[in-house]
Amino acid sequence: MIYNIPFIVVVLLIIVGLATVVFKRNLIKIVIGITIIESGVNLFLITLGYRENSVAPIYTFAPSTKMVLPVPQALTLTSIVIGVAVMALMLSFAIRIYQHYGTLDSRKIRRLRE
């Protein structure tokens, strides 16, 4: 049971993030929602590679042969880097939108529709 807690947290994080993106009207909050989903997915990846009582996957002078999986850590690291780029670009869009529209309310930012 105790090992399932991270997975429960993953699902909670993703649901919270999705709810933020769907229901919050502020563009900054939408960006935050995307970031929360991303944290959830990252946590999911890192949890997949976790093994109890194991060490970081560095072979030199390793105290035991039991190690966590290195691949999910590499994936997570890549995903975090991508996530930072995504967040930076989204926030800069939000700044520009505020300059042009004078608001961050997504209901008012719809010159493009139909």
């Binding site: 670009l89 989204m90 869009f93 529209y101 930012i109």
Partner: peptide, 12 residues
């Protein structure tokens, strides 16, 4: 303004 708006929607 509309260019940034379209980009934001696409990106989200």
């Amino acid at each position: 303004g509309d260019a940034v708006e379209g980009a934001f929607k696409y990106f989200v």
